[in-house]
Design a protein around this nucleic acid. Sequence first.
DNA 1: TTTTTAAGTGTTTTTATAACAATTAAATTT
DNA 2: AAATTTAATTGTTATAAAAACACTTAAAAA
Lengths: 236, 236
Amino acid sequence: MQKYSKQTRLLLAVDCIVFGFDGEALKILLIKRGFQPEKGNWSLMGGFVQPDESLDQASNRILKELTGLEGVYLEQLHTFGDPQRDPIERTVSVAYFALIDINKYEKQINDDYHAEWFTLKRTPKVIFDQQEMVEMAKKRIRYKAAMHPILFELLPSKFTIPQLQNLYENVFNTSIDKRNFSKRVLATGLLIKLNEKDKAGSKRGAYYYQLNMHNYYSKFQAFMNFIPNPDSISAS
Amino acid sequence: MQKYSKQTRLLLAVDCIVFGFDGEALKILLIKRGFQPEKGNWSLMGGFVQPDESLDQASNRILKELTGLEGVYLEQLHTFGDPQRDPIERTVSVAYFALIDINKYEKQINDDYHAEWFTLKRTPKVIFDQQEMVEMAKKRIRYKAAMHPILFELLPSKFTIPQLQNLYENVFNTSIDKRNFSKRVLATGLLIKLNEKDKAGSKRGAYYYQLNMHNYYSKFQAFMNFIPNPDSISAS
DNA sequence: TTTTTAAGTGTTTTTATAACAATTAAATTT
DNA sequence: AAATTTAATTGTTATAAAAACACTTAAAAA
């Protein structure tokens, strides 16, 4: 037996929702689609899965081709398979989401590709069923961040506690008491204090911290769950 | 433009991990595969996605065709796309997991199809990468059940609190104080006490409860998280 | 009538979370 | 040089949730 005869084959694509945080708001990265249909319209990073690559390989390749990003946090989100989702031909799409340090990659992205960051509240229309993918990714990132330390992926390797708090407040659309926040985040043992200050945010300056990578991996599974009144934490 | 020319098409399948609970242990349902390759070996419920159906439709259809089950809890788990996962031809598989009331469907399954229940600790070898799917499904069910009331799907519509506790203790491989358990589970407002007892488990008998479906949906997103020392709660 | 078995229930202790305000470092202004 | 401004840093108290703990009760069986 060589093939499963009588079965219909179809196209398989990968779409990536790329999240970044600029200190002000959570953003996603969109590109202008380069081919028909919907050529020139805003789209997630996407492309077809090639015969010799796995889904993870495909998503990493596409992310690199379209943004120059490599080695970033990338996680499979959900697979979208409505028969009518692509008007040209049936295409099932495996959606991934990525979390990146927006500062590290911004220049590279803008120079080499026609990509742009949009705040989640002011996202333009995206093609096909991609709005649904974005909504699901937003839910997933909140859901996961409530228990796992994934949001550090959005910050530079050196960051301050006020920056971290600001990120959490943004993602969960809430405000957190800073005394309680720093107590809890320091209690995880995940942060190493550096003898260096970030002077950009204030006159006094705030100490930089970096992740204790050993504790990071060992504590990844159960980090903390300390969001008082989340806008919504819901399952994907 | 009619088609995406130059792209390779591939086969898309769906595999379902079906969980059941018999009061003793958590079990999964396997069938003897009916076609080559691996014909006659134990397999998850699987089949190819047809041209006119969505992934959810495909998984529901396959579950019904192979087990007679309909209208059960079914959730997309993860998509597996290693190029070599099927030796005959590249086939990407979207895995789903289902939670069913084992008593309700047992007879039907055994009579009509060659399906069999296996405890998670004594599962036979399954084909391809299905062991990986099962492992991921086990993790996911624990992860989700720690915060959402999905385990009720594994019980009959009338159940006792000792039965419920037994289920939680099984899924999380831990033991829970029965006073604390009943306090917390009753405090959710999800249970309605019936004027009827289950006499099977003890001389005294235990009161039956049923789900308050109104509260069930409204409380689904944040149920409780009360597993003292879970064997492991980890993200998929 | 006694025994056996599991169901059902309350209180105390401990821990975690939430609420709350004063002090400090460092630049800027006067 | 002193005063002002701004955000960072830090600790205690109050409240709520979780954990620990043991006796009573219903009903069948002996």
